[in-house]
Structures are given as structure tokens and as C-alpha cells.
Nucleic acid binder design. Structure first.
Length: 302
RNA sequence: GGCGACGUGCCCGAGUGGUUCAGGGAGCGGUCUGCAAAACCGCGUACACGGGUUCGAUUCCCGUCGUCGCCU
């Protein structure tokens, strides 16, 4: 089963509450919580939560290590049968739509071309000549694929070329085989945004984000490292450097997080498999809500 | 009270006598098979108000109101 929804909608709380009534182990589908030492800014489940329910797919790599969906799904795929083998229910919890889709819809990455050299070469070309020549080449190699690719999006164009020049066609997907319950937490936009604002402020004021970022910077994780683009990290770094006031850092973090939440909603909205549970302004762990979700899960899985 | 400057869409901000009247931000909508908390795409008949000049005014002139500055 899986719990989806935008940031700050209460996925983790609901998961924990549910874990008290169902024998579950949690698979975290979050592209930022995989980095060690990045805890408060990513709203990673704390020690208490992790002690009460097994959490997987957290703290997989150091902030300066590259990490992609491919690695994530590979590990997630191993975990599912393992957990089931223990007689527990694998519960996917997270807001990274691509990761979710990779597992649930079964993206196949292993057989796809992937080489640092090729990427290097294409990136150099992009820098030297710009996007248009690459788009032209893409059209030439595979007009059909080119139709589906946004010609303005460098990342997509590059990846498409990687696949084509590296060889193989895109493998068919192999969707998750077992029974599936997809639960989405829905809240009025205003409520969600308010929760985001409050959480952003809390992280900065007493939550320990500034300390965490100072620690990361000291350890050599500069603001240019990919995971440092996460909400709150660059902002905290700027505040620590004296460039931004605390209020400014909080405001920018909250705004970026709201924008992200909107994109998440866009991602999940069209997925008709998701059963949306309106949570309104309720904390995600109120018994009534939990019971309702538990009911949905049991119904879907039996 | 006098003089001067200004008054552009939710905000900032260019600009022009006339077929698509910048740009940015925010917001909203969307895309999504290896960076996804990323990358990218789409969406706004706004020119303070009233007159006038003109074939045609956001752009020129007059007045009104407002804001700011200086002066008394």
C-alpha cells in the first residue's frame, strides 16, 4: 500500500498512526531523505518514529554522492518481498512522484543506457552549441520520441539522446504485481499552505535547521551540492552568511515549498487509482481519520 | 498655498501616436521512464479620472484627483 500527498500534508504522521494498527514497514519515497545528515530540512522521520516502526530507504548516501531514481527503485524492489516475507505489509510513504511511479508503475532502468562519459559529452555539447542542435539531432534519430520531448527542456532532451545514442529502446513498464491501496491525503489549499508556512518557520526557529546547515557547510557540503538545493538549505546558508535576514530566509523557504506542493498536486491529481481522504484541518493521526484510512486499506487489499 | 516630478495589470518595472503595446516576480494550470524539493511549458485586452487635439491616443495638450519632493 502507499500513502501519497504533497509535503506537509501529514503523510508521516498518518503512517505512524496506521503502523500501530497494521503490521507494516515503511518504505520512504523521498528523493531528499536519502541523504545522511540532512534531517530537519527534509522533515525526515525522527529517531522515535524509526524506533517504533521500521523505516527503509533513508540515509542511503552522503550529500556529495550522486543518487537517482534507478538506485532507489532497485533497493525498493528488493525490500518489498523481504518485508512481505516477514509477514509485514510494505507501506510506501512519500511525496516524490517519480519514485512512487518508478516502483508502482514499474519503470525499468537497468537495461537503459547510462554512462557518465556520454552524459559528459552531451553536457559539453549543450554548453558549447546550445539546445537547438541537440533537438535537431533528436528529431533526426527518432522523430516519434522527439514529439514527446519538450524541446525547451535541456534535461529531457539530453536524457532522450542518451537513450538513443546509447542504444536500446525504452523497455516496457512492469507495474507492481500485488494488490495495491493508494491513499492520498487531501486538504484545502489554504490549510496546506498554512501548514507549510508553519513548518518552515519551525525548522528555522528552534527546529535546528540552522545548526544542521552550519554542520553540513563545515563538513564541506557547499551550497552548490545538489541536495543543498532542497527547501531551506540554501536559504539557511544565506542567512548564516549574513546575506539574508531570518525572516527572508523563512519566507523564501516557505514559498518554494508551497510551489513544490503545487507541483506534487499536479503530479498526483490525474492518478485515478488514488483514494483521496479529506483531512481538512485535522492532525493526520486523529483516531477517526486513521480508522477511516485503515478501513480503506483493508478493503482494497482483501 | 506655490513649484516640480510621478501616477502602467496582484507586485516590481520598461515603453511607444497606430497591425502580436517588453521583461521579471507572485498566483493558477500543466508536462514528467536516471539530477525530480529538479528541469520545463502555458495563462493577464494594464496604462488614475474627465475633457481636448488627431483618421487614430497608454503615449501630445488642458483640467481634476492622488502620491512624493522642494519652497512659503
Amino acid at each position: 500500500m502507499a500513502i501519497v500527498g504533497p509535503t506537509a500534508s501529514g503523510k508521516s504522521d498518518l503512517a505512524l498512526a496506521l503502523a500501530r494498527r497494521l503490521p507494516v514497514e515503511i518504505l520512504v519515497a523521498d528523493s531528499r531523505q536519502v541523504y545522511r545528515g540532512m534531517d530537519v530540512g527534509t522533515a525526515k522521520p525522527d529517531a522515535a518514529a524509526r524506533a517504533s516502526v521500521p523505516h527503509h530507504l533513508l540515509d542511503l548516501v552522503e550529500p556529495d554522492e550522486a543518487f537517482t531514481v534507478a538506485q532507489w527503485v532497485a533497493r525498493a524492489r528488493e525490500l518489498v518481498p523481504e518485508i512481505a516475507g516477514r509477514g509485514n505489509l510494505p507501506m510506501l510513504v512519500g511525496g516524490t512522484g517519480l519514485y512512487m511511479a518508478a516502483l508502482v508503475d514499474g519503470h525499468v532502468y537497468e537495461s537503459q543506457p547510462w554512462s557518465p562519459e556520454l552524459r559528459r559529452r552531451l553536457t559539453d555539447e549543450l554548453e558549447a552549441e546550445g539546445l537547438p542542435p541537440l533537438v535537431a539531432r533528436l528529431r533526426n534519430l527518432d522523430p516519434e520520441a522527439a514529439e514527446r520531448i519538450d524541446p525547451h527542456n535541456p534535461r529531457r532532451v539530453l536524457r532522450a539522446l542518451e537513450r538513443l545514442e546509447g542504444g536500446g529502446p525504452v523497455p516496457a513498464m512492469s507495474p507492481y504485481a500485488g494488490r495495491l491501496a493508494l491513499i492520498g491525503i487531501s486538504r484545502p489549499r489554504e490549510v496546506l499552505y498554512q501548514r507549510i508556512d508553519e513548518r518552515a518557520r519551525q525548522m528555522f526557529e528552534g527546529g535546528g535547521l540552522l545548526e544542521e546547515v552550519a554542520r553540513l557547510l563545515n563538513a564541506g557540503s557547499g551550497p552548490d551540492l545538489h541536495p543543498m538545493t532542497g527547501h531551506g538549505y540554501g536559504e539557511a546558508a544565506r542567512h548564516l552568511a549574513g546575506e539574508w535576514s531570518l525572516e527572508q530566509a523563512i519566507a523564501v523557504t516557505a514559498r518554494r515549498t508551497r510551489q513544490y506542493a503545487k507541483r506534487q498536486l499536479t503530479w498526483f491529481r490525474p492518478d485515478t487509482r488514488i483514494l483521496w481522504v479529506p483531512a481538512g484541518e485535522l492532525p493526520a493521526n486523529v483516531p477517526e481519520l486513521v480508522a477511516r484510512v485503515e478501513g480503506l486499506v483493508r478493503a482494497a487489499l482483501t
